[in-house]
Nucleic acid binder design. Structure first.
Lengths: 349, 349
DNA sequence: CTGAAAGCGCTAACAG
DNA sequence: CTGTTAGCGCTTTCAG
């Protein structure tokens, strides 16, 4: 009954009655203590006495109070939240990345906040917003202009994942070497000579690297690309589209796809168009998602530790010091879509 | 120069020097105006004069100031953020749901905040946290206990998507009828008698409904289920597992799968085990993701307006009034995995 | 062991 | 047209 009816300049009707959540002040009043005491109780501060503590606890339970994380954030200058910026949420790749980050976030008690830019032009604004609401930021390569990354990195903790940056530590894989190794397999083991790349390098650093690796291998073997890359998106549907294009022009010996989903699209569509895989054309993927193993023929691809990428990045974004460039190992996974014989152990019949 | 050096009780070293972001006060000082004026400028308040405005603008640009959304949120009592609670982020279904919600969020200028509960036991705490940081909440059916939904709904705007609730408006499809219709097709058109359901009803309201619809149709036709449901998860990999189980026991006439991914897993694995689809066994999916059309044979399934579900839910969570129960229409999509002949128009050769 | 009060960044009513 | 100031919900120093 200290501060009561005498309406204050901007008397906010709310102190009593609204269905709004109770504040620390409501609890203090109900328990007959000061807000400081309530705050202490919510923090298990040992300095608050048994009887008082019980009274406060009771009031908290009765009114259903939970401290506002907004208020806390403002006071702490820390939000206990990790932000992740991705091009989109579709597909298993990003899901895995998020899960990796989540695993470390959970054990540190921080919430996660994902933003899909979808190549929207106003994405930068959203990213800035996100940056403010988080203690750290994971940014997927290609989603945010370099200048903006520099700006964000200057203001807070940011780490780039699956990409490079001069301004922030990056965690990535060596997609270029991996793609080269994969392509070499196609050339050296299977003797393919006419190879095409499927994927759109522009805008995706990952795809660019893979395309470069592909070309590295061709160059080593003194081979020419069988035409321009087939510029398609990274999803299954695009793969199906690519299949039609391939079908309508000359079929190369092998198609090196920018990721598994694209490869699956080809894999599923080409047979219906009369082309056998791998006899008529070999196909490879990249990432080693679960689809790769399910497909038939099973997909030869490159395994990437995607969840691990996410986890490392999260740790970094949350304060662990990171090398400017952490590169995680990939592994070539040979299955049958390249023309290799089925691993006898795979036929578990 | 009003409030100056006289160190305040708790002189926070920061006002000058830290690499921290500038605050509204820094701008005010730099431009020689009051914070109110700065605030007005950031709001394009017409009341601020040309010359002053320019000075403030200049300071803002020079120091790289952006208003803290945390501070704003606290003052506005509104965060301009929409929360979405899902079981997980994997799979095209949730990606589509999010995109639907995103589309309406974007046009209203609100940020989106996704939380994957992953069936974690402490998920409730995360959800509460999220609730505080958002103006509205979209909750996927089965992710949060009913009691908690009631609690959240009492405190703020929440809408349940792909599920039901007594305490919050729901937007959903009639999965039960759709599943029944699909199953009837299998029975009446193809004459199948021994049908099994693939999916785990427990924990997923969606799956439960589909299973019930499946049984409704069997009952109408006076048929018995060909054994218990095959309890598997909703992803492709689980489908592959289910395929082995089916293979090792007796093959039914048809397998009605809880979603497309599961069906694709079966579809891709069964042929390798020596079973032709649809000759030896018919398979159907649910959702009509892009994979359904790519698969071979193409998947007979039920189309759901997933993005639309997300969009409606978002509108509701953002303040639009919603019926207690909005049910969106589904559509049976007949392709070849059920045994129907290929639509001639599909062979675009 | 507890309370008063300043301050986190911002907005808006009110006064000038 | 501009400044002062209380207040949003919370934490924490400093007194008592």
């Amino acid at each position: 009954m200290t501060t009561h009816d005498a309406q204050t300049p901007r008397s906010r009707t709310r102190s009593h009655g609204g269905s709004s959540r109770p504040t620390i002040r409501d609890i203090a009043r109900a328990a007959g203590v000061s807000v400081a005491t309530v705050s202490r109780v919510t923090h298990d501060d040992p300095r608050v006495a048994g009887e008082t503590k019980d009274r406060v606890r009771e009031a908290i339970d009765r009114l259903g109070y939970t401290p506002s994380s907004l208020g806390r954030a403002l006071s702490y200058q820390r939000t206990n939240t990790l932000g992740i910026v991705l091009p989109g949420l579709g597909g298993p790749y990003f899901a895995a990345l998020i899960e990796g980050a989540e695993s470390v976030a959970v054990e540190r008690g921080v919430a996660i906040n994902v933003l899909g830019t979808h190549l929207r032009p106003d994405a930068v604004a959203s990213v800035r917003q996100l940056a403010e609401r988080t203690d750290g930021l994971i940014i997927a390569g290609g989603t945010v202009p370099d200048a903006e990354i520099a700006r964000l990195a200057a203001a807070g903790r940011v780490v780039v994942v699956a990409g490079e940056s001069d301004d922030a530590p990056a965690v990535l894989t060596d997609g270029r070497s991996a793609a080269a190794e994969l392509t070499r397999h196609l050339i050296e083991v299977h003797g393919h000579r006419r190879l095409s790349f499927v994927g759109e390098p522009a805008g995706s650093p990952d795809t660019t690297l893979r395309y470069e690796g592909f070309r590295d291998a061709l160059r080593e073997a003194r081979l020419d690309e069988a035409g321009e890359p087939l510029r398609y998106g990274l999803d299954v549907r695009s793969g199906a589209l690519a299949a039609r294009q391939v079908h309508e022009s000359a079929l190369p010996d092998a198609l090196v796809c920018a990721n598994d989903e694209l490869a699956i699209g080809l894999l599923a569509t080409l047979p219906g168009l009369g082309h056998r895989i791998p006899q008529d054309v070999a196909i490879t993927g990249f990432d080693d998602q679960s689809l790769a193993e399910i497909a038939s023929p099973r997909l030869t691809t490159v395994h990437q530790p995607v969840a691990e990428l996410g986890a490392r990045a999260a740790a970094g974004a949350l304060g662990e010091t990171l090398d400017p460039r952490t590169v995680l190992p990939t592994r070539l996974v040979i299955r049958e879509s390249c023309g290799c014989a089925a691993d006898p152990e795979a036929i578990t019949d």
